[in-house]
Design a protein around this nucleic acid. Sequence first.
DNA 1: CTGATATGACCGACTGTCGGTCTATATTTA
DNA 2: TAAATATAGACCGACAGTCGGTCATATCAG
Lengths: 209, 209
Amino acid sequence: MRIVKEHEERRNEILNSAQTLFVTKGYTKTTINDILQAVGIAKGTFYHYFKSKEEVLDAIIERIIQADVAKAQHIASDATLSAMEKLFAILLAQAPQQGDHKEQLIEHLHQPDNAEMHQKSLVQAIIHLSPILTEVIEQGIEENIFQTNYPQETVEFLLVSAQVIFDEGFFQWQPEEMLQRATAFVQLIERALGAKEGSFQKMLTILLK
Amino acid sequence: MRIVKEHEERRNEILNSAQTLFVTKGYTKTTINDILQAVGIAKGTFYHYFKSKEEVLDAIIERIIQADVAKAQHIASDATLSAMEKLFAILLAQAPQQGDHKEQLIEHLHQPDNAEMHQKSLVQAIIHLSPILTEVIEQGIEENIFQTNYPQETVEFLLVSAQVIFDEGFFQWQPEEMLQRATAFVQLIERALGAKEGSFQKMLTILLK
DNA sequence: CTGATATGACCGACTGTCGGTCTATATTTA
DNA sequence: TAAATATAGACCGACAGTCGGTCATATCAG
C-alpha cells in the first residue's frame, strides 16, 4: 500500500523508529529492514531521506544534543541567575532526558555494545555543551565562587568523566557503587573548579535520579 | 601453497596484522579478507584460531592492556618507591606505547570513527589499571601527600578523562590546544588528589611526548 | 475547467560485500 | 596407521545500499 506524507513528517517518523531501535537493540544490530518494518515503508523510501544508516544515527544524535544545548543556552543567557544557579539548572536539565521523542529512552537502559552511539553522543555533547558551560564557569570566577585558570579544559574533563562513568552503556554499577561515584564526583567538581567545599552538595540530589 | 607454523606464531601473525589494520583503517572497515590477505592465509585458517572478528579485537585489546598492567604492577610493588615516584613511573610507562607489537602504532594516527576499539580499550584500561593506581594513591594518603576520601573513584575519573581527551581518535587537537589540556590536566590531578599545588609539574614533561 | 507537465514521494527487486560455515585435504604426532 | 591438528577455499545467508520505475499532487497553458 502506498501512503504519501509530507517530507518532514516522514523524516521524523524514520528518526523516531530508528531511535527506539538503536536504543533498544543497539545501532549495529538494528538492520535497515527493522527500520523499514517499524515505519512501514520500503527501502527506496528510506534512502530517499537518508543516504546511509550512519546518517540516520548522526541525525538522531544531533536532534538529542540540539535539545539539550537549547535548554542550556536558555538558562545560561538568563541574566538574573548566579553562576551557581545556572550550573545547577543546566545539569538538572540534562539528567532527565524527557521530551517528545525521548520518552522512550527513559524506559530502556542504554544498551551496552553500542559504541558508535555512545562515542558520537559523547563527542557532540562535549563540542556543543562545553562552550556554554565554560561561560558559566567564567561568570563564577568573576563572582569569586570558582577559581581556575582553565575553565574550558576543566569543563571538558568533567563532562567526559560524567558522561562515561554515569553512562550505563560503559559500566554497570550497583546502586551503592553509583552513589559512591556520584558523591565522589561532587567532590571532584568542587575541587576542579576551586569552589568552596560542600557548595555542590545539593547536586547529589539531582544526580541521584 | 600451504605453510604450517606453530600455533602461537600463527596466532600472533594474525593479531599483528589485524592490529595494524584496525588501527589504520578502523575496526569496522577492516574486513576479514583484509586480514587474510595481510597474513597470507585462508578463511578456514583464520577461523581455526579465532571464532569471530570481535574475538580478535578483544585479544588485541587484552594484549595491549596486559602489557601496561604488567608494567604498572611491577612498579607498584616496588617497596623502595614513594607513592609519588610510583605514580610518575606508572604514568610514564603508559604514555609512549612502544614495544614488540606496538612500534607500528606510533607511526599512524589513531583512526577517528573507531568507536569499538576506543571503547573497549577505555573500559579495559579502567578495569585493570585503576585497582593498581588506587593502591598507590592510598599509599600516598598514608604518606600525607594526597588527601581524598575517594581514591578509587578519583582514579577512575582521571583515567577516563585522560584516555578520552588525549586519545587522538576522539578529538584532533592542535599542538597548542594539546599543551593547554595537558597543563590543565596536571592541575586537575593535583586538585583531585588533594596534592600540593605544583607537585605534579614534572608530569608535564612526561605528557608532552 | 481541463489536459499536459513537472516534482518528488514511494516502491521492491536486485547487487555486491562481508562475516561466518562447512567439507576436504595435508601434516604432525602418538 | 589412526587420531589430532592445521590449512585451504568453496559456499552461504544476511545485510547495506542501488536502480529503474510508479503514483500522487501541484502548477500552468489553453
